[in-house]
Simulated scan of single mutants.
Amino acid sequence: MDLLALADFNLVARHGGFGRAARETGRPKATLSRRVADLESGLNLRLFERGARALKLTEEGRALYERTAVLLTELDETAAAIASGGDTPRGSLRVSAPLLFSQAAMGKLAARFALRHREIRLEVTSEDRAVDMVEEGYDLVIRVNPDPDARLVGRIFMRDRLVMVASPSLPRPAGKSPVPAVVRGAGAGGQTASWELTGPSGKKRIAVQPVLHLSSLFMVRDAVRAGVGAARLPLSLVTPDLVAGKLVHWGDVDGPEIALWALYPSRRLLSTRVSTFMDFLKEAFPTGSPGELASFID
């Protein structure tokens, strides 16, 4: 197989078209088109569906792209490392991270990583959706309690849990009267609900009535600080306020723990950039406790 033709096919697949790939790389569009046509002829496969306005990978084209994109990147990295006379990680590293973790810690983490590894161009995108790593060109993703995926491998680097907290000015629940609550996301008006908590005396349920719906957990925390109502929040997010006495702990929320995973595509050869970032996360969170993440929060 012609590696140059394969590399040009990957360029076109990654950028979503011959014209865009040509503009981004400075390569002649005609050359890219010819190389891809030669590859299709040599494999006796159609790799792209060519429409009037759109270019889409065929099923065979997608399979070829998924299996070769990483290998070509690793070949480039190996050649660059040999040419430079060492194994210093270099090149671009694209990371997708959830919104809360990004707001709490990623700015400081990214700065420290960039200062230590100046040959790596780090790019972090903050979003809560489950991105397609291969299709969207990510090297590593950070996910909260991800569903099992045979295409990805990785490890947990942080564990957290939900706690119910409130301002010291908010009276603790007495009897069956609902407690005003601040919740994340949209809800059905102010319908009464109940939250199950665990504590030294066992499990108990607290009736709550949502009075405020907010889209960000940082916004929820700030509203709770102001005394509007109680809320369920990650322990890492509220630890500084609990220590300072700005919030009080009403109990642990009954339910599964919050696990943050660092994941990358399953393959035999692991990029040195990804392994370097994984080691960096382990160094930043050696025990993976909520208190270590809390230390990043202002």
Rank of each mutant, 00 (worst) to 15 (best):
M1I: 14
L4R: 14
L6A: 10
D8F: 13
F9Q: 06
R14F: 13
H15S: 08
H15L: 09
G16N: 10
G16W: 09
F18R: 01
A21G: 03
A22F: 05
R27K: 14
T31S: 15
S33A: 14
S33P: 01
R35P: 01
R35Q: 15
A37Q: 13
E40N: 04
N44P: 01
N44C: 04
L45V: 00
R46S: 15
F48L: 04
F48W: 08
E49V: 13
R50Y: 11
R53C: 02
K56W: 05
G61A: 00
R62N: 08
R62C: 00
A63K: 07
E74L: 15
L75P: 03
A81C: 14
G85L: 13
G85V: 12
G86L: 06
S92R: 15
V95I: 15
A97T: 06
P98E: 02
L99M: 10
L100P: 01
L100I: 06
A104V: 12
M106I: 06
K108Y: 05
A111H: 09
R112D: 14
R112L: 11
R112C: 00
F113N: 04
F113D: 00
R116E: 12
H117L: 02
V124G: 02
D128R: 09
D128S: 04
D132N: 14
M133Y: 01
E135I: 03
E136H: 08
E136P: 07
G137Q: 04
Y138M: 12
D139L: 13
N145S: 04
D149F: 09
A150H: 10
A150D: 12
A150K: 10
L152T: 08
G154A: 01
D160T: 01
R161A: 05
A166T: 05
L170K: 09
P173W: 03
A174Y: 03
S177K: 13
P180G: 11
P180F: 07
A181S: 12
R184A: 13
A186S: 10
G189N: 06
T192N: 07
T192Y: 01
L197V: 04
G199N: 02
P200C: 07
G202D: 05
G202L: 07
G202N: 05
G202Q: 08
K204H: 02
P210I: 00
V211I: 07
L212F: 03
H213Q: 06
L217D: 02
M219E: 14
V220N: 00
D222F: 05
V224F: 07
R225G: 05
R225Y: 10
R225T: 05
A226S: 15
P234A: 08
V238F: 02
T239C: 00
P240Q: 04
D241K: 00
V243N: 12
K246E: 12
K246M: 00
K246C: 00
V248R: 12
W250R: 08
W250H: 11
D252P: 02
P256M: 07
I258R: 07
L260G: 02
L263E: 09
P265Q: 12
R267F: 03
R268M: 10
L269I: 13
L270R: 13
S271Q: 13
V274T: 14
S275K: 14
M278K: 05
D279G: 15
F280C: 08
F285L: 11
T287N: 11
L293I: 09
A294P: 06
D298W: 09
